[in-house]
């Protein structure tokens, strides 16, 4: 199991960095989706089965669709080249920074030698659905508000302009 966890986490980081560094925005969105897919494998192995499903369908699927919609709405001949953003050159240092920060954190963890918690055993006592609908109903009200918000956002922000302020 541990091998899959390390592999999933590593792939997630790798695809995340690719999404940041890639200068084609479409490939960056796909990198984000792959990062999300790796995370969902990771979540499944860690025992969050329902969350893994949601991660795969919502974050990896729906968010990518939204970004691609955004890309196609902002399509212009100039965008084909993408040279003006120079993301590859500007983010060239990112891997070095990440390796540096990572080494620093590893050294910190080794020198402090902290007492780290282990993962607790998975219990089958409480079901996600019971917790969500039984205990976390304040969050459900929040979700309702968020979805209303998203509806208005789509209606307002993506609309073609007819009248505008000055």
């Amino acid at each position: 199991m541990n091998v899959i966890v390390y592999l999933g986490a590593g792939l997630m980081l790798l695809f995340g960095v690719y999404a940041v560094m890639e200068h084609s925005i479409l490939r960056a969105a796909i990198g984000l989706a792959l990062s999300s897919a790796s995370l969902s494998v990771l979540l499944y192995v860690l025992g969050a089965h329902l969350a893994a499903l949601f991660e795969l369908s919502v974050c990896s699927g729906l968010v990518t669709v939204i970004f691609i919609a955004g890309i196609s709405l902002s399509h212009s001949p100039k965008m084909e080249i993408q040279k003006e953003y120079r993301d590859k050159e500007r983010n060239r240092l990112l891997p070095l920074v990440l390796i540096g920060v990572g080494l620093l954190l590893v050294i910190l963890a080794l020198t402090l030698n902290l007492q780290t918690p282990e993962l607790a055993q998975l219990t089958q006592d409480d079901d996600v659905r019971d917790v969500l609908w039984g205990n976390r109903q304040a969050d459900i009200w929040g979700q309702i508000a968020l979805i209303l918000c998203g509806g208005v956002a789509v209606a307002v922000l993506f609309r073609e302009e007819r009248r505008e302020k000055k």
């Binding site: 976390r136 968020l146 918000c149």
Partner: peptide, 23 residues
């Protein structure tokens, strides 16, 4: 956590309210 959820609702409404006049 519920505080965070409603914080997000508040923030998102503000972004849309500022952006909706579209200048």
């Amino acid at each position: 956590f519920s505080l965070y959820v409603f914080l997000e609702v508040t923030g998102l409404c503000c972004f849309i309210m500022i952006a909706m006049f579209r200048s």
